[in-house]
Structures are given as C-alpha cells and as structure tokens.
C-alpha cells in the first residue's frame, strides 16, 4: 500500500490500514487514498482516522505498524474509522457525546 495519499493525511507506517487526518476536512471533499479517489461521506476533524483499504469484521486495524483493535462492522476505503466500526481487544472505550449520552 505505498500508493499516493492526499497531503491532508499522514500514513505512519507502510503496512497501516488507516491514515491520520492532519486538518479538519469537510463532508463531500474528494481525497486520494492509496491511489484511489474517494469522496468523504462525513466531515472529519484533526487526529481522526480514515481507512486506507476495505476491511471486514474481525480484521485487525493497523496504525503505527501495529494493531490498535478489531473491526466490528465492514469498512470501505476512505471511511471514517472510529468507535462505530472498531473496538479495543483489551478494555472497552468510554465516550460521552455533546448531548451527554454515552457513545
């Protein structure tokens, strides 16, 4: 997976299946990921992750060249990778939404 990736993304290790967003990017923006052109379905903010390849449930998610958890729902290339589609292999993640609900 050494194909060209948009400057707004950082790939931390060649084998990684996610790239890190280095600035806020609006929904509908077109991005180049792993040589492929994708359109962002939703806005993402600094520090979040986008998929560099399609992943299926149970796959390990690779960042920094190591696993950071497992896929819980199929992920398409360019999709936002976060709590809704991956989980820890150790302890569950706790997150509050702005509305005060537990995500």
């Amino acid at each position: 997976m050494s194909l060209a990736t948009d400057d707004r993304l950082i790939v931390l290790a060649p084998i990684d299946t996610v790239a890190v967003v280095r600035c806020a990017i609006d929904a509908g923006t077109s991005l180049k990921i792993s040589g492929q052109s994708v359109t962002l379905a939703q806005a993402v903010t600094l520090g979040h992750k986008l998929a560099r390849c399609a992943m299926k449930t149970g796959d390990k998610v690779l960042k920094y060249g190591v696993s950071i958890g497992s896929v819980t729902a199929p992920i398409a290339i360019g999709e936002h990778v976060h709590l809704h589609n991956i989980q820890s292999d150790y302890t569950p993640t706790y997150a509050l939404t702005e509305a005060g609900a537990v995500a």
Partner: peptide, 28 residues
C-alpha cells in the same frame, strides 16, 4: 487491573480527539 474496573485509562475527550481504543492511545 483495568479490566477488573471495567474501563481503560481512557477519557471521553480522547475519543472526541480521534482515538478509538486504549491500544491506539498506548502507542501514542
């Protein structure tokens, strides 16, 4: 120890900032 407590060393703001799992936070 953290498994017994039910939560990792992970605050809600970590997730808002793009971190999804404790092992991702750990690598950082």
């Amino acid at each position: 120890y953290y498994a017994a407590l039910g939560y990792g060393s992970f605050a809600s703001g970590n997730a808002n900032g793009g971190l999804s799992t404790i092992e991702e936070k750990s690598m950082g």
